[in-house]
Amino acid sequence: MSERKLRVMVAKPGLDGHDRGARVLARCFRDAGFEVIYTGCHQTPAQIASSAIQEDVDLVGLSCLSGAHRYLFPQVVKLLQENGAGDITVIGGGIIPDQDCQKLYDAGIKAIFTPGTPLDVIVDWIKKNVKPLE
């Protein structure tokens, strides 16, 4: 009997060691029944894109609290596209000022979740918007 399982990756790009949020999310996704690959802190966009492809994930969740999201997030999307994996959904979260959100959406980030977002909201968004493979 076949059953598709959602695979997601939680990653922290750039020079940012504040991983509490990312770990809470990794745990929360696990409890939602997803298979979660957590790659730890201080990752380059290239490491993240390459890991996402090796792990065949449906979604990459990026967490950034350092202020470098405007460079790092779009870079991950670009590298995924360049390597034939533009179908992987990328979402982001962390300390993201409101005025940056539109730029990130334009760059291909599908959703942004900032501090105070209930975990259920994120899980529901993923369940609604990310379907495991056909």
Binding site: R27, F29, R30, G33, E35, V36, I37, T39, S50, S51
Partner: peptide
């Protein structure tokens, strides 16, 4: 391991291996 309760899993082994990711 997979959770016997939710079917979810946290796969964290590759954290130690990320220098080879590229």
């Amino acid at each position: 391991p997979t959770s016997p309760f939710t079917g979810g899993a946290t796969l964290g082994d590759r954290i130690r291996m990320q220098r080879h990711a590229e």
